[in-house]
Amino acid sequence: MLDSYARHTVQPAIEGGAIFFRSAGLTANKITWAAMLIGVGSGAVLTLGCPVAAVVMLWISGYLDAVDGTLARMTKPSRWGTILDITFDRVVEGGLLIALLLVNAEAYLPIALNLAAILVTITIFLVTGNVIPNTGAKGFHYNPGLLERTEAFVFVTLMILVPNLVWELAWLFFALLLLTIMKHLRDVYVWLGKNNID
């Protein structure tokens, strides 16, 4: 939700980063790779017992993930870049949840369910993006959800920094993911109905 409705508040900082990296000769795809590597590194650092460093790396990764799309639109967006971006986002999320599972084995069930729910959420998100025509600046129709990447980062950050509440936070995250799935399904169902499409 924050990605869709609060993006304008941080967009100047994102554009500033895009301009900086463009002037340094870096492409959007290189920034996408850097975001993924730093994000996966965040999970590795967490398993080594450095939660604060893991959170810092996570948010650097998230910032770069926002910068790469802006940089692509400043230059020439590519379908390959869109594929890399979406794929690497899931790599980072999966890596972080696995790292959380490794350091919080007592919360294995809700964390494992988070992984499963993210798989379903991204599936319906992408299917919806494929069905509904794109009228925005992104590479496909972007359907806002109750939970988006920023909210996921907030939950992961809380689970890292407040490990005594990881069980409760993981269950809450799972519940909100389920609501997000239902919202995406409802949105595409309504759109199909309005357009008389089976």
Rank of each mutant, 00 (worst) to 15 (best):
I111L: 09
P144K: 07
I38N: 04
G16S: 10
F20S: 07
I98A: 00
M159E: 11
P77V: 04
A105D: 10
G39F: 00
I124Y: 07
A53N: 11
W167R: 08
H141M: 12
I122Y: 06
L102R: 08
A13E: 04
L165Q: 11
M159C: 04
I122L: 04
S61K: 05
A105Y: 01
T47A: 08
A54G: 09
V166C: 12
N29Q: 12
V55W: 02
F155M: 02
L2E: 08
T123I: 01
M36N: 14
Y108C: 03
E15D: 14
L58S: 09
V52T: 13
K30V: 14
G49K: 07
S23P: 01
T9G: 03
A112K: 00
T157I: 05
A24K: 14
P144G: 06
H184F: 09
L158K: 10
W59A: 01
D187Y: 09
K30E: 14
P163S: 11
T27P: 12
L147M: 13
A107N: 05
R7H: 14
L109W: 07
V91W: 02
I14H: 08
A24H: 09
D89M: 00
D68S: 04
G69Y: 03
E106Q: 12
S4F: 11
V45S: 06
N104T: 01
K30D: 06
G62V: 02
A35L: 03
L169N: 09
G81E: 05
A44T: 14
I98S: 01
N164G: 06
T135H: 12
I124P: 07
A137K: 15
V91S: 01
V120Q: 03
T157D: 08
A44E: 08
F20Q: 07
V67M: 02
F173P: 12
V120H: 00
F140I: 07
Y189Q: 10
A53P: 08
H141A: 15
L176G: 06
T70G: 05
I197E: 11
T47E: 13
S23V: 04
Q11L: 14
T70S: 15
L126F: 01
S4V: 02
G17T: 05
W191L: 08
L169D: 10
T150I: 08
V56K: 06
R7D: 12
G136R: 04
L177V: 01
A28Y: 05
V55D: 08
L158M: 12
V55A: 13
A137W: 08
P77D: 10
V120K: 01
L46Y: 02
V67W: 05
M57C: 09
M1Y: 13
I38D: 03
A28S: 15
V162F: 13
P77M: 03
A35T: 03
K183D: 14
